[in-house]
Design a protein around this nucleic acid. Structure first.
Length: 215
DNA sequence: CAAGAGATTCTC
DNA sequence: AGAATCTCTTGC
């Protein structure tokens, strides 16, 4: 029995209601590991000309300063400059010649920390997400990876370095499901070659939409 | 299923 | 050169 099955209310979500539930600015002004954990269960909302799509965050990773796996480890560069902006800044990077991944900047301005959103569970606008992920045939693989969710939600890479906290932002976070404390797990991060031992990945236990069920 | 490799381009 | 990935193919 899957306790994460969609509830009826999810099908009735509309943009106005979700906007009223936006996470406040001070939600992001906390320790980066705490933010990575606290974003689990929250909604990530993306509005485009095609419509609105919403995903519940089920997996995140923290990238800290003094962290060999972080893009910011060797200091500020043109690429990672958004990481050194205020918390709530969008950091989108291009990877492996094909893909984009989405992070929220965390921690104090100037230190270079962020939370990578690794997987979301489709909540609203599911048809739109399926359309954008045309090649994906399996229901639970529409948004179970950092580049997949960018595609599914239609996150525009040109949003890089903009603030999520702005009222006009087409991309923002909102309060979502209450999470029982026992549902959160922590593990090493995925796909990195340095900093492998650090348990900076957070996910919702037994959620079908996490990116890698083995970790 | 699990494992491996190609895709494809930007950054340092 | 190598990358905070995805997809398809191959082989068991």
């Amino acid at each position: 029995m899957n306790t994460d099955a969609p509830s009826l209310s999810r099908h009735t979500l509309n943009l106005k209601e979700i906007k009223a539930d936006r996470l406040p600015d001070n939600f992001f002004k906390k320790d980066t590991l705490a933010l990575a954990r606290d974003l689990l269960g929250k909604y990530l909302v993306s509005t485009t000309s095609e419509g609105t799509a919403v995903g519940k965050i089920v997996e995140t990773e923290a990238y800290l300063t003094e962290d060999p796996a972080s893009h910011a480890f060797h200091g500020q560069t043109k690429r990672n400059a958004p990481m050194f902006q205020d918390p709530g800044t969008i950091y989108i990077y291009f990877i492996y010649g094909n893909h984009y991944c989405f992070n929220v900047v965390s921690g104090k301005r100037g230190i270079g920390e962020a939370v990578l959103i690794r997987a979301v569970e489709p909540v609203s606008g599911v048809e739109l997400m399926e359309k954008r992920r045309k090649r994906c045939t399996k229901q639970d693989q529409i948004s179970n990876g950092p580049a997949k969710l960018v595609q599914a939600l239609g996150i525009d890479p040109s949003l890089n370095n903009q603030s999520l906290l702005s009222q006009e932002s087409p991309l923002f976070f909102a309060f979502g499901d209450e999470l029982a404390p026992g549902k959160i797990a922590q593990s090493p991060r995925i796909g990195i070659s340095k900093g492998k031992g650090l348990p900076y990945r957070f996910y919702i236990i037994a959620n079908p939409y996490i990116s890698n069920k083995k970790h």
